[in-house]
Computed example of a mutant assay.
Amino acid sequence: VPKMAANYLMHNRSISPAGCGTQIFLFLTLGGGECFLLAAMAYDRYVAICHPLRYPILMNQKLCLHMTAGSWLLGGVDGLMQAGATLSFPYCHSREINHFFCEAPSLVRLTCANTMIFEFFMYVCCILMLLIPLSLILASYSLILAAVFRMQSTEARKKAFATCSSHLAVVGLFYGTLMFIYMRPKSYHSVGHDKVVSAFYTILTPVLNPLIYSVRNIEVKGACRKWLEKHFKS
Rank of each mutant, 00 (worst) to 15 (best):
K3P: 03
N7G: 12
N7M: 14
N7H: 13
M10C: 14
M10A: 15
H11A: 15
H11M: 13
N12G: 13
S14G: 13
I15A: 15
A18E: 13
Q23K: 08
I24F: 05
F27L: 12
T29G: 07
T29A: 12
G32A: 04
E34L: 09
C35A: 10
C35W: 06
C35H: 03
F36N: 01
A40S: 11
M41N: 05
A42I: 00
Y43A: 09
Y43E: 07
R45S: 10
V47L: 08
I49Y: 02
I49F: 00
H51T: 05
H51N: 06
L53I: 09
L53F: 11
R54V: 06
P56I: 08
I57F: 13
N60R: 04
L63T: 03
L63S: 02
C64F: 07
H66P: 00
M67W: 02
A69I: 06
A69P: 04
S71F: 06
W72Y: 13
L74E: 04
G75S: 02
G75Y: 01
G76L: 01
V77R: 01
Q82I: 03
A83H: 06
A85I: 00
A85P: 03
T86A: 10
L87R: 04
F89Y: 08
C92V: 06
H93N: 10
R95H: 10
E96I: 05
E96N: 10
I97L: 12
I97D: 00
H99G: 10
H99V: 05
F100R: 04
F101S: 03
P105N: 11
V108K: 06
V108E: 11
L110G: 02
T111Y: 08
A113G: 09
A113K: 07
M116R: 11
F120G: 12
M122T: 01
V124M: 09
C125Q: 08
C126K: 03
L128G: 06
M129T: 03
L131C: 15
L131E: 12
I132T: 08
L134K: 06
S135G: 15
S135R: 11
S140G: 08
S142N: 14
S142V: 05
L145E: 03
V148Q: 01
R150K: 10
M151D: 00
T154L: 11
T154I: 06
E155Q: 09
E155S: 08
K158A: 11
K158Q: 11
A160N: 05
F161E: 02
A162M: 09
A162H: 06
C164K: 04
C164P: 03
C164W: 02
S165K: 08
H167C: 07
L168E: 05
A169Q: 06
G172N: 04
Y175I: 01
M179Y: 02
F180Q: 00
I181K: 06
R184T: 03
K186D: 10
S190P: 05
K195L: 07
K195C: 07
V197E: 01
V197Q: 02
S198Y: 00
Y201A: 03
Y201S: 00
L204R: 02
T205W: 03
P206F: 01
V207P: 04
I212D: 04
V215Q: 15
V215L: 15
K221A: 15
K221R: 15
G222K: 14
C224W: 09
R225S: 15
R225V: 15
E229V: 07
E229T: 07
E229N: 14
K230D: 13
K230I: 09
H231R: 15
K233Y: 13
